[in-house]
């Protein structure tokens, strides 16, 4: 993970998280609606502005999502290949290449969100956007997952280290998977039990205090831009 929240004073840092979420969705809708050379050229410009206004370099964003590149390359190659004459279908390959490129643009915008939005704000945005108990459940749950992810990762790392110190890595695949997951799961479950007890002891309630979220003047152009992108996608 190379991209996570970093404090800063860029334009994107000052925006409300709800505005940024809305913009991401609008951008993706526009990219899927206008997968043409012209449309993607325009959206590349938009993505460039987004990266520049959030202090993320394109390289960082690409490294973050390196995992999807095999699929993005396989798409056009497989689409272009045909099992009979004429063997290579340029048009299908080109269409799929445009589709792959639009994914890269969507990933850029998503990287900008990750860099400029703290978890607390995202959680508050979820609770503002999803009404009622469902939203509170999602909001608190997201906080818990963030809290426990590094703990469980460390658990699994220790289990794997201990297992390989005892030549566990020479056993069969199923045995190894079982070993890691039985110990990992039993630790996770006992952590869950202790955590539930701790929550009850601290009066875990449906009405927590959230960080204040408010729209500012900086949000206006971004909201207008999101609406514009959506309109462009529909027309």
């Amino acid at each position: 993970m190379t991209l996570s929240y970093r404090p800063g004073d860029s334009l994107a840092h000052r925006l409300d998280p709800r505005t940024k979420l809305a913009f991401q969705v609008a951008f993706a809708v526009a990219a899927f609606a206008h997968t043409t050379p012209k449309g993607l050229l325009a959206l590349s410009g938009v993505a460039g502005v987004v990266l520049a206004s959030s202090d993320v370099s394109a390289r960082e964003a690409l490294v973050e999502y390196r995992f999807v590149f095999p699929f993005l390359l396989a798409g056009p190659l497989l689409s272009a290949a045909a099992l009979g004459p004429p063997w290579i279908r340029w048009q299908a390959g080109f269409d799929s290449l445009l589709a792959s490129y639009r994914v890269v643009l969507v990933l850029f915008v998503s990287a900008a969100y990750l860099r400029t939005t703290p978890v607390r704000d995202s959680r508050a945005a979820i609770q503002h956007l999803v009404p009622g108990k469902a939203g509170q459940l999602l909001g608190t749950g997201v906080g818990f997952v963030f809290r426990f992810l590094p703990v469980l990762q460390a658990d699994l790392r220790r289990i794997r280290d201990a297992s390989s110190a005892r030549l566990g890595d020479q056993r069969g695949l199923i045995d190894r998977m079982k070993l890691v997951s039985i110990s990992g799961l039993s630790r996770a479950l006992s952590r869950a039990d202790r955590f539930a007890l701790a929550l009850r002891a601290r009066c875990f309630s449906w009405n927590p205090t959230l960080p204040p979220l408010s729209f500012s003047r900086a949000d206006v152009p971004v909201i207008v831009g999101s609406v514009g992108l959506l309109l462009w996608a529909i027309i």
Binding site: A28, Y65, L107, S110, A111
Partner: peptide
């Protein structure tokens, strides 16, 4: 692969 973000949900996988 340790990736995150709305982009991953809209990507190829």
């Amino acid at each position: 692969g340790g990736s995150a973000g709305v982009g991953a949900l809209l990507g190829p996988t």
